[in-house]
Design a protein around this nucleic acid. Structure first.
Length: 590
RNA sequence: GGGGUGGUAGUUAAGUCGGUUAUAACGCCGGCCUGUCACGCCGGAGGCCGCGGGUUCGAGUCCCGUCCACCCCGCCA
């Protein structure tokens, strides 16, 4: 039986027509005299009715139907009259069944296929094929497909080519841990799965394919989070003869198009720009959620006048003291403030100092260290008024900003300051090019080693590498890093200089990146690009709180797939073929 | 690598100070029911209390270890 309509299609205007529907038995209601079945497919649900007055044999046969059986029914569309269900799109009608075919039976499912969550996530992941039948998950997966289609359409219109890059590629020293693939043909050698198609898309530019994009799978063997999966998808873009403004403008058109197509939401572009330094100083984050205020404040220069030894010694040691004013926050309980301190400590602060402003006076544990005449300077700097709560973190600058930035986010949530209906896009620009890796005692690229320095900062590479800025930009949405990119180095000499500053010697550079350096020797055009985290984008667009909810077959927090039970042991013959031997503890298993 | 939370019928959960037969709801099976829509009513079956060890006269409960899931820190250019 071929279906004539989907289960979401029938309306009052179809009354009288003969139709065939196919789908899954969502529920069956046996009233004795007749039976209703809700038939479900991905388009909706339609009620079908078995009535012995219509066909006694068919009525008997319908008695064995159970949830998740796959059936086809033929019948007449009839009006439900006064019994219409206003909660269903198809609720005005039902199908009076005259023909039933059981296409497949189902065992009793481990959990019911309902919109409301009734099963643990562990079970849902093990029976993912059932979970994916549920409407809320299905909506997100469908929106994901719509978003990629929308992106492809726009990029195609703008003259971009969708080009592929290899999955089996070379391990490179910088960045995240690689997933390795042993070579059978080359004993002891390994491919790496790409952390991103970065180098290949640059090579495409050198080859003259001047507008590239790819919906690219990327792999990083690092520990997981709710917003981090070991394999994830990027909308990856590269453009020749383009600078940051061209890439950003394209990215804005892309976001505007995708939000319009998928959510029917009009995003305003251009998006605001903010320098990294400003983002850190004002919000304590390089991906600030700018949907609410509660900005940070530098008070280091004011502490010398106080008697607070903790602050004074931190400042004397070259550290920072940052403050955060919570308007009307004096009503926060001790327990609530303790919870904020726990947030600060978790993110690297030694503690969270606080005072409540009561007219001219302060109350709280640190109040006694701020004698008359010292409080005014803080109050005016922070804009404090009576009834406010003042919070302070003293630490080295990076820790102080990060800890207080996290306290700010916690407060934003607790105080309900976040307008969930807003889409607050923001470009963060002027990132530092390099950052110090104290463990290895060297400078490392903050973005990646192919990011161009700001031209006027090139001399700083010699004199003060930490102050050199990158021609890099991140796109931030509601406090999440949605994407990032940069203008690339297309000059061989600058690239070699970068490698030198990163402690990558000429021989190593030649061995690891020789192909890129050779390419840059052969007429590399200026080029720039960006990559968006598709999974995160869909997560934000659908209001999901975990990447697992927008990936059809995700991994658990320990990078396992509960559906397939991957990863799994392999037998010794497979290992031999790959010239691998078990080591240590793994040797004793199976 | 570290910290936190959880694991008890098919599922979701309750289980007191360690006590005798481990509860409930939903689901499942059987019966009844002609307007339900998470139909309703009556009855029934269903347990390796994650796993291993220990303490105890006695452990779902206390202790140690371990596995799995989730959240966070480190890590993730």
């Amino acid at each position: 039986m071929q279906r004539t309509h989907t289960c979401g299609a029938l309306r009052a205007s179809d009354v009288g027509s003969t139709v065939t529907l196919t789908g899954w038995v969502a529920t069956h209601r046996d009233l004795g005299g007749f039976r209703f079945v809700d038939l479900r497919d991905r388009f909706g649900v339609t009620q079908v009715k078995f009535d012995p007055a219509d066909d006694a044999a068919l009525f008997d046969a319908s008695g064995e139907l159970r949830p998740e059986w796959v059936i086809a029914v033929t019948g007449t569309v009839v009006s439900r009259g006064n019994n219409a269900n206003r909660d269903m799109a198809t609720g005005d009608v039902e199908v009076a069944v005259t023909g039933l075919e059981v296409l497949n039976r189902s065992v009793v499912p481990k959990f019911p296929i309902r919109d409301e969550l009734d099963a643990s996530e562990e079970l849902r992941l093990e029976y993912r094929f059932l979970d994916l039948r549920r409407r809320p998950i299905q909506d997100r997966i469908v929106k994901r497909a719509e978003a990629t289609f929308s992106a492809r359409r726009l990029l195609h219109e703008e003259g971009f080519l969708e080009l592929e890059t290899p999955f089996l590629t070379r391990s490179t020293p910088e960045g995240a841990r690689d997933y390795l693939v042993p070579s059978r043909v080359h004993p002891g050698e390994f491919y790496a799965l790409p952390q991103s198609p970065q180098l290949f898309k640059q090579l495409y530019m050198v080859s003259g394919y001047d507008r590239y994009y790819q919906i690219a799978r990327c792999f990083r063997d690092e520990d997981l989070r709710a917003d981090r999966q070991p394999e994830f998808t990027q909308i990856d873009i590269e453009m020749s003869f383009a600078d940051e403004s061209a890439v950003q403008a394209l990215a804005e058109r892309l976001m505007v198009r995708v939000f319009a197509d998928v959510l029917d939401v009009a995003i305003e572009a251009p998006f605001p720009r903010m320098a990294w330094r400003e983002a850190m100083d004002r919000f304590g984050s390089d991906k600030p959620d700018v949907r609410f205020g509660l900005e940070l404040c530098d008070v280091a220069d004011l502490v010398e006048a106080t008697e607070f030894g903790v602050f004074r010694s931190v400042v004397a040691g070259g550290g920072a003291v940052r403050g955060l004013r919570v308007p009307g926050g004096a009503d926060r309980s001790r327990k609530q403030i303790d919870a904020l301190e726990a947030v600060a400590k978790r993110h690297g602060a030694k503690g969270l100092a606080w005072a409540k402003v009561d007219g001219e006076a302060w109350t709280g544990p640190i109040a006694k260290f701020f004698p008359d005449g010292t409080r005014d300077s803080f109050a005016s700097r922070m804009g404090a008024e009576s009834g406010d709560l003042l919070l302070f973190v003293a630490a080295d600058e990076e820790q102080a900003l990060n800890a207080l930035g996290q306290v700010r986010l916690a407060l934003g949530r607790d105080l309900g300051l976040v307008d969930a209906s807003r889409w607050a896009f923001l470009w963060v620009t002027d990132f530092p090019l390099l950052e110090r890796d104290e463990d290895e005692g060297r400078w490392v690229a903050r973005h990646h080693p192919f990011t161009s320095p700001v031209a006027e900062d090139v001399p700083l590479l010699e004199s003060d590498p930490g102050r050199a800025r990158a021609r890099a930009y991140d796109l931030v949405l509601n406090g999440f890093e949605l994407g990032g990119g940069s203008v690339r180095i297309h000059d061989m000499g600058v690239q070699e200089q970068m490698f030198r500053h990163l402690g990558i010697g000429q021989a190593e550079a030649e061995e690891k990146f020789g192909f890129l350096l050779r390419a840059l020797h052969h007429g590399a055009p200026p080029h720039a690009g960006i990559a968006f985290g598709l999974d995160r984008l869909i997560m934000l667009m659908t209001g999901a709180t975990s990447l697992r909810d927008v990936i059809a077959f995700p991994k658990t927090a320990s990078a396992s797939c509960l559906l397939t039970a991957a990863p799994s042991p392999v037998d010794d013959r497979q290992l031999e073929t790959l010239h691998l031997a078990r080591a240590g503890a793994a040797q004793r298993e199976d």
